[in-house]
Design a protein around this nucleic acid. Structure first.
Lengths: 144, 144
DNA sequence: TTGCGTGCAAAGGTTTTGCATGGCA
DNA sequence: TGCCATGCAAAACCTTTGCACGCAA
């Protein structure tokens, strides 16, 4: 519990602030690096990765494996502890347009319970992304 | 329907045969390349990728994005067409031990229908993996 | 014979690592 | 002051691409 997260550096604060400003964004390391540069205070790519790793260990951000190619994304894990575990909602990622949908749905929450009860497996929603076609791209596909 | 899959080459047959011999395996390109080398007839990595791409287009293998780091996997898509579309089962990947579970379950199949009906999103099971803790690792974690 | 498939090497992108320096505590 | 964090560059890693040659049809 002591010294959670190590040193408090400008870079870490800057990255964290950007996440706070964009709580719904799923950012790749490249996007974050560029955003930092555009903010006027560039941060090295290695530092970005190391900082994200640290923030993830602290539970301040969450890592996703979104893109098939192009690497991981990180999302701000807002003040979650008990009341807002942020574990409860599913992510749907469109393989066509790349859009990410956040789905909060009772039925889907039942899935975790079912899988645990019947298959002995605890689903970690924060790591899980369902891939498929969003409504818009589905209609586009059917038309074409 | 004509010339499905282009030329019939030794390399393609060799890769396909390996999949037939390991129908449940999820193989990375590297694993497959090494397996080919160990079989005595090495196949270039580029050829492995291009062959997998072709086999996937033919519907003979299925591509998954399993590992957070380390790239994609391919699995043999056994004689599926209508009766056994192989789209119906979910994959559960343990983030602790890496084990991959294949779950074929009516309840879970209902998920796709629910998401389509209520959220307008078609889930592509072949691309989707649910991450979490398998039973074994869960007990191990709780004990420790 | 035609042109696709192969192999090698090089390029592409993301993430990690080494090492000297800088900054937090 | 001690040690962690940073930055740069280089390396590692997976995947794709270019090009000349080989082989299936």
């Amino acid at each position: 519990m002591q010294r959670r997260g190590g040193y408090q550096t400008k870079q870490k604060a800057q990255i964290l602030q950007y996440f706070e400003t964009h709580p719904q964004a799923h950012l790749t390391a490249a996007e974050l690096t560029q955003a930092m540069a555009e903010c006027g205070t560039p941060i090295g790519a290695a530092t970005v990765y190391r900082t994200l790793e640290r923030l993830e260990a602290e539970g301040r951000v969450r890592r996703y494996t979104l893109d098939e190619r192009g690497g991981a994304c990180w999302q701000y894990a807002a003040g979650q502890s008990e009341e807002n575990p942020c574990h409860s909602h599913f992510h749907l990622k469109c393989i066509e347009c790349g859009q990410l949908l956040h789905v909060d749905c009772e039925y889907l929450q039942g899935i975790g319970e079912h899988i645990l009860a019947h298959h002995g497996f605890i689903v970690d929603h924060s790591r899980t992304v369902l891939y498929g076609l969003c409504e818009h791209c589905r209609q586009k596909t059917q038309e074409g």
